[in-house]
Write a protein that binds this DNA or RNA. Structure first.
Lengths: 332, 332
DNA sequence: GTGAAAGCGCTAACAG
DNA sequence: CTGTTAGCGCTTTCAC
């Protein structure tokens, strides 16, 4: 593998000149630039990224830390980030935190040690305090799906409350008056925000909130099944169900059918997130779109702008959900 | 950030000694080892990975190249690889090739330039020839879901023929005699292997293969819909359908119901891959398991063994599919 | 067992 | 606009 050294020799210029054209510096004459380029071409020169990192203290690597690598959400996110970053010549290093505080901290260290220029995180085990402390270190980072007031500019998040509102409103607009709700773990901000939105829609329509129609799940499919089974068993009746995410909605659909009911004839169901498999379900699940792709892209752009000084990038931190009506909600 | 230099000063030993304990070399006295460790602790020393890479020409990074980062398959794979590699202290750099030959080649260059110690690839646009040529370069690699005779030891693949056989056999065992088939693009090896397995099962049961009951899809959901719609329209009748992957099976289920038929009462359907959402479908999709997780793990271990000289690792290149009977296939 | 010294390939002042 | 000169932080011969 040829080095910058051999290039400089062949081109008959100094090391620095080669380095300059390599880094697109201004103040290089067209002539030497041409000579250098030709020499690089001839030698099949490929710059050694590691050496560049060491000398410049820049790795051109962005670390991505997520709870899990599998699941419908993360793939979409990774894909959007990788696409955006790679076309800017940046690499993506991934690490999973497995929703475990210690493991997530290790993941961060892992990524920082690797000299990542910046981090993108979608994690929930890490405390706000930890993240705030981290913001004083030299590695800039971005946080997805989380709003931390002290770190406002670094956070890219959804108006979850509005999403929750939209979902329940859609049910109400279809004539439903008794609406059950399966939430995510209320210890998580996004879960409570969505639930608050649900309640706001109820109030707005002057519908009473009935605690018997509430079930707290954990965002996983099984809790959707458990939730719907529980709801179906209690006495208060209802005609529609809003779930705080699509996985739980899928579980609820299963439970509903296992009990011999039809969707949406007997029960209308709406999810949240609009993950790709919602279209595969039968009936196709009505849901609320979570623009994870846009958010992932935006946070990549934030890094491009902050860390690599790209210009002309408009940053938005707050994203809006939209209703995706499909087949699982019917008029009553 | 403390350097090895400060550690050596504080410990009162030379640079080399510090380096030795850092790298777990033999021939270091317990005493100096202790002193060094203490000094590191005190200074909160964290070795600079980049400098180590440059000096040792080892990055402890494994590059992963996949067609796409989203989709049900890749997440599972990435997750298994990251878990396995990270606990060995290795990092994972990902790149997507977008099923485009040039883009995949760029992905490889990208990863090699980044000084990856090895590569794991799950790609289909790259030709065997290209891969064979690549095997002469200094970066070892592994190929998933693909069998290249010249690169036998580097390939980790499924017995797709057997999988195809198992699926159709399951249909036959349930009494079906007219079985339709929606294949993947026959230009791809895995698609033809699966299809061959289908035909073998037919022959074995002395059932005639009817070309009218065949549709060539592209592994995406829409082609499953198109396929089933086409099959339903032609005159030859059938009672069961085997699909070369789960996405197409999901599409076929949709088409079946859109035409007013029930699954499995009117048509039994079986998929292939056993991706996570097959359990979310209604009815739950019977399918054939593709042990992508095991394969991903095994290929990580191959790298650990070949590149990092870990011992006691048994390598298997060929994996076996298994039948996963669920609800979408009924006796006739 | 330990230390000295020479790089790994490149960037970045600093002169000119 | 170009060349000289130090390093970046660590590994690795090679002596001792």
């Amino acid at each position: 593998m040829a080095t910058i050294y051999e290039v400089s020799a062949l081109a008959g210029v100094s090391l620095s000149s080669v380095s300059r054209v390599l880094n697109d510096h201004q103040h290089v004459s067209e002539k030497t630039k041409k000579k250098v380029m030709a020499a690089m071409q001839e030698l099949g020169f490929r710059p050694n990224t590691v050496a560049r990192s060491l000398a410049s203290n820049r790795s051109n690597c962005i670390g991505i830390l997520v709870d899990e690598l599998h699941g419908p959400f993360y793939g979409t996110m990774l894909s959007a980030i990788e696409t955006e970053l790679r076309q800017a010549g940046k690499h993506t290093i991934v690490a999973a935190g497995h929703s475990n505080e210690q493991s997530e901290q290790e993941g961060i260290d892992f990524l920082i040690d690797r000299n990542c220029d910046a981090l993108i995180m979608l994690v929930d085990a890490l405390s706000n305090d930890y993240l705030i402390k981290l913001s004083n270190s030299k590695t800039p980072f971005t946080v997805l799906n989380r709003q931390i007031p002290e770190l406002e500019g670094n956070c890219f998040y959804l108006n979850n409350e509005l999403g929750g509102y939209l979902a329940t409103k859609h049910l109400i607009d279809n004539g439903h008056k008794q609406i059950a709700y399966i939430s995510g773990p209320l210890s998580k901000q996004d879960a409570t925000d969505r639930f608050n939105g649900h309640q706001r829609a109820l109030q707005e329509a002057k519908l009473d909130y009935n605690p018997a129609l509430f079930f707290e799940g954990d965002f996983l499919i099984q809790s959707g099944r458990d939730g719907m089974n529980t709801l179906l068993k209690q006495k208060a009746c209802f005609t529609a169900l809003a779930c705080a995410n699509d996985e739980m909605a899928a579980g609820a659909m299963k439970a509903t059918r296992d009990q011999g009911f039809n969707i949406p004839e007997d029960y209308s169901i709406i999810g949240f997130d609009n993950v790709f498999f919602t279209e595969y379900l039968y009936p196709q699940l009505s849901t609320v779109n979570f623009p994870i792709k846009d958010m992932a892209k935006m946070s990549s752009q934030w890094i491009l702008k902050q860390v690599y000084k790209h210009k002309d990038i408009e940053i938005t931190n707050l994203f809006q959900p939209t209703l995706i009506p499909r087949e699982s909600v019917a008029k009553i």
